[in-house]
Amino acid sequence: MIRVSDIMDKEIINVKNGKKMGFITDIDIDVNEGKVVSFSTTGEGSGGFFSRGMDVDMIFWNDILKIGCDTIIVNIGSERKLDIDEMKI
């Protein structure tokens, strides 16, 4: 079992692009189902709860790949597919 306070201390990283997405600022729970639906984050380096007016990113529970000791790894967005002709070595 994981406590909410433990999850909010973990940094979120997107596996698609390696981008640091910041820390969780809010959790949306479906009380009828008893399940976590999504997390909100205001981005890397934001002031968390006190950062009013900042852009908020939503991370859905289904996008989480792994909750580790220090980080939460998510899979958000699409990968760019490169043609062999586009690659220059």
Rank of each mutant, 00 (worst) to 15 (best):
N14F: 01
N14W: 00
N14K: 01
V15W: 07
V15M: 02
V15Q: 03
K16E: 04
K16I: 03
N17G: 00
N17Q: 06
G18R: 08
G18Y: 00
G18K: 09
G18S: 06
K20F: 01
K20E: 02
M21F: 01
M21L: 05
G22L: 14
G22W: 14
G22Q: 09
F23C: 01
F23N: 13
F23G: 00
I24R: 09
I24T: 00
I24A: 01
I24C: 09
T25L: 00
T25F: 05
T25V: 07
T25Q: 09
D26M: 09
I27Y: 05
I27L: 02
I27R: 08
D28H: 15
I29C: 03
D30S: 13
D30M: 11
D30T: 08
D30A: 13
D30C: 13
V31R: 12
V31P: 01
V31S: 06
N32M: 06
N32Q: 12
N32D: 11
E33F: 03
E33H: 11
G34I: 00
G34K: 03
K35W: 11
V36N: 04
V36W: 05
V37E: 12
S38W: 02
S38Q: 10
S38E: 12
S38A: 14
F39M: 10
F39V: 09
S40P: 10
S40E: 15
T41A: 15
T41K: 12
T41C: 11
T42Q: 10
T42N: 15
T42R: 15
T42W: 09
T42S: 13
T42E: 00
G43P: 13
G43Q: 12
G43I: 15
E44I: 09
E44R: 14
E44V: 06
E44G: 10
